[in-house]
């Protein structure tokens, strides 16, 4: 019994992380898969969302000798609805908005750049935001210590498996809703014109499309979803800490791997791909105890996941560059239900 409960808690926690990466991958699939925007700064939008959410669901902490403080909101200000503090809803919304606003200001000067320069610019911005600002604002962000004591929406105290399971269900439902909303969006004339921009921006302009504005819409919306994912990550981790612990280029890379493996331009594909990276991580952490490994393998199996990702990527790019699930033909499709007359 204790065994079974432990497995439920473990799998639910893993499942929630899959969901959090699935949100990131869906967002990148809008930006890159549909619009061709090479966002190499995912970690910053994710991180900003996570920090914003953490500050909304924790009390402010003043800086003390031992520990840098951080901003927060007096939690008494948030009424509870059905026993769950409204601070979580506020946190999620503000996380998305904060990341969207950051994306807007990054996009204005960089969006007219060629794709490769845009990638470098977003990477640079991300590094600056996370390493220079977030890490060096003790009193606001908790500096190098980050923010601890972040609660989860549903707490069951000693029954940890219930906490994990309910959190997993919450994350999973958000992923499902996001999936349907994004499918509806990309399978509309808007998705079609984004794809035209991706395939030939000059031609789209010559046909009268305001490609700058279209790219901006896609980038900001995608970044907002990344911020949303960041909020769920902060709750999951029960805190945030700055690079090199979290929100690094390796996280950005992981999301790219998910999209490339799953199939760029295919939302179903990237949902499937979202299992791969967290699974390898989970596997490489647990393999030691599962297989009763001996040294030196026991301490090195953790790095196995990096090799595995590399091998999968190389094989895929050689044999199936479109990913496991290729992009569907026929972009816009009348949805089953429409509104109005």
């Amino acid at each position: 019994m204790v065994e079974a409960v432990g497995i439920v808690a473990d799998v639910a926690s893993f499942g929630a992380l899959v969901g959090i990466f699935a949100m990131l991958a869906l967002a990148l699939n809008l930006q890159w898969g549909k619009t061709g925007l090479f966002n190499a700064g995912i970690a910053a939008f994710w991180g900003l969302g996570a920090y914003t959410a953490s500050m909304v669901v924790t009390n402010p902490v003043p800086t003390a000798l031992a520990r840098p403080g951080h901003w927060g909101i007096d939690q008494a200000a948030f009424p509870a609805v059905f026993g769950v503090s409204t601070s979580f809803t506020v946190a999620i919304i503000l996380a998305a908005i904060a990341a969207g606003v950051l994306a807007f200001f990054i996009a204005i000067p960089t969006m007219r750049l060629r794709a490769d320069y845009f990638a470098i610019a977003t990477l640079g911005f991300a590094e600056i935001v996370m390493n220079v600002f977030v890490k060096n604002l003790p009193g606001i962000t908790g500096g190098v210590e980050g923010i601890g004591g972040v609660p989860q929406p549903f707490e069951f105290g000693a029954e940890g498996w219930k906490t994990n399971l309910s959190y997993f269900l919450l994350v999973a439902s958000v992923v499902v809703v996001l999936f349907f909303l994004l499918e509806r969006l990309v399978r509309s004339p808007w998705g079609r014109v984004l794809q035209a921009v991706r395939e030939d921006e000059d031609a789209a302009q010559a046909l009268g499309k305001d490609t700058f504005s279209l790219k901006l819409q896609s980038f900001v919306l995608g970044a907002g979803i990344m911020g949303l994912s960041g909020a769920f990550f902060a709750f999951w981790l029960r805190g945030v800490s700055p690079p090199p612990n979290s929100f690094t280029a390796a996280d950005t890379f992981a999301v790219w791997v998910i999209v490339i493996i799953g199939g760029s331009g295919n939302n179903r594909g990237v949902l499937a791909g979202a299992f791969v990276v967290p699974f390898l991580e989970y596997f490489s952490v647990r393999a030691k105890s599962w297989f009763d490994l001996q040294e030196p393998l026991a301490s090195q199996i953790f790095y196995f996941r990096l090799i595995a990702i590399g091998v999968v990527l190389i094989l895929l790019i050689m044999w199936r560059p479109q990913g496991i699930f290729p992009e569907p033909k026929h972009v816009a499709k009348r949805p089953r239900w429409v509104i109005g007359r």
Partner: peptide, 15 residues
């Protein structure tokens, strides 16, 4: 339908 909000809502007149 090339505006994201009308595309998301899915107005009949768009389709």
């Amino acid at each position: 339908g090339e505006r994201p909000l009308s595309a998301l809502i899915g107005w009949k007149r768009v389709w």
